[in-house]
Design a binder for these strands. Sequence first.
DNA 1: CGGCGGATTGAAGGGAATCAATGCTTGTGG
DNA 2: CCACAAGCATTGATTCCCTTCAATCCGCCG
Lengths: 248, 248
Amino acid sequence: MSASELKTTRSMGPVFSPPATEDLLNGGRLLRRAFLEAGACSSRRGTTVIEPEQTDPPVFLIHRGLAYSSATLADGRRAITEIHLPGDIVGAASIVMGGAHYSVIAGSDLSYRPLSATTLRGLMGNPQIAMRVLALVGEDRRRADRHMVGLARLDARERLCVFLVDIHDRLRRRELISRPTFNVSLNQDEIADHLGMTMVHVSRTLRRLREEKLVIVDRHVVIILDLKAMREVALGQASEAVKEIIPA
Amino acid sequence: MSASELKTTRSMGPVFSPPATEDLLNGGRLLRRAFLEAGACSSRRGTTVIEPEQTDPPVFLIHRGLAYSSATLADGRRAITEIHLPGDIVGAASIVMGGAHYSVIAGSDLSYRPLSATTLRGLMGNPQIAMRVLALVGEDRRRADRHMVGLARLDARERLCVFLVDIHDRLRRRELISRPTFNVSLNQDEIADHLGMTMVHVSRTLRRLREEKLVIVDRHVVIILDLKAMREVALGQASEAVKEIIPA
DNA sequence: CGGCGGATTGAAGGGAATCAATGCTTGTGG
DNA sequence: CCACAAGCATTGATTCCCTTCAATCCGCCG
């Protein structure tokens, strides 16, 4: 089996460096276990889970619901830099950076498990966990890169397709959904802040996508009608390198 | 001394988590040492240093010159996601991610020291180095976040100010310059791809900044005329949380 | 000198923002 | 049970920032 075939075969989840994979899997197990020892918390939609001023904030494993990281400028302009889904670990980088420079806000009613920064720093003594934490941050970074490319070079329609397909794929990979229908508990204002556009234009663009019979977004329910076509809009012009990251 | 005063005092470089700082400093030393044991390399301007297809690529410490990470879409649109300056360590995340999903290109003639992914993975056994590597990726992520906010919510003039002030501050912090004049060996096309605009509009906006007597960018030479005013454009509306990150 | 890549400038067009009004749910209270 | 307010979404009209297209210019090098 060739290398490329191998890559296509294991299309679930992010592709790690083969020599590191063993450690990563084990580190992942240990890390999850550490989270499970912590008690579960919950926050209602709209609550700020992490404040930017907070020093040495805890790290969260999201159990249910959706959260996002956002930064607000003094004049009120806001950008949502990342969407966190169930299974995501939020804020891993802050254990060395001494604090987030953004807020983490519950986008829906949320349940999660916090792990104190100190505890996690202690766990870093285990190289497998250290590797795993590094992988978490690396994965975030990869997503951030893709998002930057989108913000810099895609138009509104493309951004929305990428956004929706992305969420779909992440939920699918985690086996949280089995059909191309899911719930995104963000309102259009929040989507706009994530994609660098206005609510008005999100609304118009969603209408267009609906008319094109690509996807229906009503309230918080997303129904993807033509996943293949959406992928084409999203990645039709993505480079081969980027395509490899996204499972078909 | 209050906490905020303390923060302002140590205004050089990124602020780390206090409990981790000791480890980080030591890990940093060890890491630099590992790089210095490797031989120096050089690449001419325009060379691709890391290809996106490359599996398990090495990590680089840049010695002299400038490089950037870029992703190109199939239709030719390109986004430059990050600028790497002397002293930066490039590609640390790829030791677990199994490869970059972007190219790293020499923006000028470049000299650097590579460290193989395998070697660095071995060094991760040392918790101090592991912490330090995590900090590297975390720092990158922080910059990525700032850049996303810029792409999403700043206009052309603001983006250019942020960009130039950012480079200035990074060079200043590393003590590579002492006056607000420096060299950015990127052409306007590359700047445009970094800031998500067109070369034509970069040109126009730079003219405007010149007329406003804020900064002169001629060829590859940047002369900042009014640093304070530029910071105001750049961060005038930055949130307090973001401001703290940037040294005055 | 001529040619070339990069930068500049002008004119025209378009995508998205802005302003503003209306509609639709939902929840609350009379 | 309806009225009404509040929040969110939709739609239209207008404006504007930025892109696109195209021509010119400038410094550099063979």
